[in-house]
Design a protein around this nucleic acid. Structure first.
Lengths: 335, 335
DNA sequence: TTGTATGCGTTATCAG
DNA sequence: CTGATAACGCATACAA
C-alpha cells in the first residue's frame, strides 16, 4: 500500500491540493467546514506530509538539528524534553547529533545531513558557532545556544553564578568550617564549558561578601568512584581537625553530594547535623534522600531556547536575545 | 550567495543536467572527458546534491538511520565508527537516534524523521523490529541488526557465548578457585540484551566441559563504584578462605576488571600471580595495564552490518543473512 | 554518449 | 475562501 500523498487527501476530501496545504500549514482563512473535511481525510488516510517535498517546495523541512554532549546525564535528558516539547507543539521534528569528541563533529560537518536537513540549529553547552561559520559559509541556519551564553546569538542559559551565590549565601550563615567540591572539566579548547567555574565564582563571591571563606576545596572527576574517594579524603581531613565538626560542604553536583552522603553515613556521622551538604541539580533521588540542593528549571530553559529559535524561523529580525534562568535553592534535611 | 544546483553545474560544465546527474550517480557510460569537466565544475562550485530533492525524485535520500543505546561506552563509539566508515564509502550519510528509554523511542516513532528521512535502518543491540512492524506498517525500510541476532532479518553480531567459552577454557587450566563477575542488566522487556547471559553460558559451559566450576559468582551494576565494591566483596571472601590464593576471576567487562585490578593493588596483592584476571572488551587502557582480556572486532562488525544493509539497498533479494564475529583472547600479564 | 522532458510531493502564486 | 498551476532540485525514461 502506497503512502498517501497530499493528492490523495485532496481527492478524499473533495477539495484541491492547495486547500489541503493551507490547513496543513494553518494558513489564512479556510472555512471551518472544509477544514474539518480535510482533517478527517488526513486522519482516515493516516497521512503525514513528506518533509523532503516540503523542503524542496517551500524551503522548510520542519526539522531542527540539536547538537549536544552525550545525553547520559539527567540534565540533558530533561533539556531535550523541554526542547522537543516546544518543537513538537510547533510541529517541528528534531534530529539529535550527539557530540562525543571532535572527530564526531568533523563527521557531522562533512556530512550533508546537517547542512540540508534542518531549518534551524540548537547547540547545547558548547558554542560551536565559530566552527560552523568557518566551515559552512553558505547554509547559515538560524541558531540558538542553550546552556551556554554568547553575545552574538540567541541563547537560553542557566545562571550558574547565581546558583553558586545562593549556595554561598545559605552556607555563609551556617556554623563551622566551609568546604567545596568541584567537578574537573578536562575538555579540549573547542569543547569547553564554564558551568563549574561559574558556580565557584558565585559561591566564593557570596562567602567573601559575608566575610567568610572556604577551609579547603577539592576537585573530583564526574564519576561515582572518584566522587566517593574525594568525599573520603574530605572527611578524613575534617575528622582529623580539632573541632572539625560540624562543617558545611557545597558539593557542586548532586553526583558529588550523593557520594558524600554515602560516605558520611558509612562513618556513622549524620548529614544535616555533623556534615551539612548542599548539592546542585536536584536529581530525582534528591528529595527521597532529603538533599538540600539547587533546582534548575532545565526543561524551561530548553523550552525557551526552542521558542527563541522558532521566532527566528518565523522571521523575527531583532538583535540577539539572552534568556537567563536561575536555579532555586531547595532546603531539605541535609543543610 | 545562492547554493548551487545541478543546473548551475550543468551550465558551468557546458553539459545537460542529465549528464551531471549521471556522473553524480556514476551511471552507465559517460565519456571520461565530459565526466572530468563535470567533476571540475562540481569542485569549482563546491556543489553538493540536495538530498531532499534526491529523495523526491529518485526515492533515495542517501541517509541511514542508526538506532543505538547511548554511546557513552567505547563499544558504541567503535561500532558507530565501523558503520559510518562503510556508509561513507558508499556516499551515505548517517543519522543517529540515541535510545535512552522507551519514551524516547516513542518520540522517534512519532516523528517524521525516522519514517521518511532514511533509506535504511540499523538497530544496535536491541531488536526493535517488532515494535516497528506494529507501528509503521507503511514505510518498511530495509533493516539490519548489529550486535544482536534474529532469524528473520539481516544481522551482524558478536558471539558472546564463544567469548565466554574462550575465557572459560583458558581459566579452567589455571590453578586455584574460579570466580566470575557479571553485569546486572536491568532493562525493561523491550530493551533487552543477552550479552552477559551469553558470556556466562559460554564460560560456565567451558568450565563444565573441563570438569570444573565456579567457587562463587557476583553481579555488579555497570558503574565504577559498584564495580569497586563488588571487587572488594570478592577479595574479602577470597582472602578469608584458607588457601584462597591464588585464584582466577573472569570479570565479564573491562570496567569490572579495572576495578578489580585497583582493589587488588590496594590490598598489596599482585595481579597475575595472587589473583588472575580475565576481562572482556579490550578497552584502550587494557594493554597499558597488562590486562588479559577478550578483544572484539567491533568496527568489523559495524562495517559488515553496513555492507549487509547496502546490499539490500541495491536490491539484493536473498533470505536473511547472519554474520558472526568472534572475540579473541589477548593474553597479557594479569592471567 | 548526451540533451530534453516528465514526474516526485509540496508550497506559493494567482486567478476566480 | 478555493482551485489550478508554476516552481523547487533532482533522477530517469526517451530521443537524438
Amino acid at each position: 500500500m502506497r503512502t498517501p500523498t497530499i493528492q490523495d487527501v485532496a481527492r478524499q476530501a473533495g477539495v484541491g491540493v492547495g486547500t489541503v496545504s493551507r490547513v496543513l500549514n494553518n494558513h489564512a482563512a479556510v472555512k471551518s467546514a472544509t477544514r474539518e473535511a480535510v482533517l478527517k481525510a488526513i486522519a482516515d488516510l493516516d497521512y503525514t506530509p513528506n518533509p523532503h517535498a516540503r523542503r524542496i517546495a517551500g524551503g522548510k523541512s520542519y526539522t531542527i538539528s540539536v547538537l549536544l554532549p552525550v545525553l547520559t546525564t539527567e540534565f540533558y535528558t530533561r533539556l531535550l524534553d523541554g526542547l522537543e516539547t516546544a518543537f513538537q507543539e510547533a510541529r517541528y521534528d528534531v534530529a539529535i547529533f550527539p557530540l562525543l569528541d571532535r572527530s564526531r563533529l568533523e563527521r557531522y560537518l562533512a556530512s550533508h545531513t546537517l547542512a540540508y536537513q534542518a531549518d534551524g540549529l540548537v547547540m547545547a553547552t558548547y558554542n560551536l558557532t565559530e566552527v560552523f561559520h568557518e566551515r559552512r559559509l553558505r547554509t547559515q541556519q538560524p541558531t540558538v545556544l542553550v546552556d551556554a551564553f554568547a553575545e552574538n546569538v540567541d541563547c537560553s542559559f542557566m545562571d550558574n553564578v547565581t546558583g553558586g551565590r545562593l549556595a554561598g549565601e545559605y552556607a555563609a550563615a551556617l556554623p563551622g568550617a566551609l568546604y567545596a567540591i568541584w567537578v574537573e572539566t578536562e575538555l579540549d579548547q573547542l569543547f569547553t564549558t564554564r558551568v563549574f567555574e561559574d558556580r565557584r565564582s558565585g559561591f566564593l563571591g557570596a562567602l567573601a561578601a559575608a566575610g567568610r571563606g572556604v577551609e579547603a576545596e577539592y576537585t573530583s572527576s564526574f564519576d561515582t568512584l572518584a566522587a566517593r574517594n574525594t568525599a573520603a579524603t574530605l572527611l578524613d581531613r575534617v575528622q582529623a581537625a580539632p573541632g572539625g565538626l560540624p562543617c558545611t560542604v557545597f558539593a557542586s553536583a548532586d553526583l558529588l553530594a550523593g557520594a558524600l552522603l554515602d560516605e558520611v553515613r558509612v562513618r556513622g556521622l549524620t548529614a544535616g547535623r555533623d556534615v551539612r551538604i548542599i548539592g546542585f541539580d536536584d536529581q530525582p533521588w534528591a528529595a527521597a534522600r532529603g538533599l538540600t540542593t539547587l533546582h534548575q528549571p532545565v526543561e524551561g530553559m530548553g523550552y525557551e531556547a526552542a521558542g527563541l529559535l522558532l521566532s527566528r524561523l518565523s522571521g523575527y529580525p531583532g538583535p540577539p536575545r539572552a534568556r537567563r534562568f536561575e536555579p532555586r535553592l531547595i532546603i531539605r534535611d541535609t543543610a
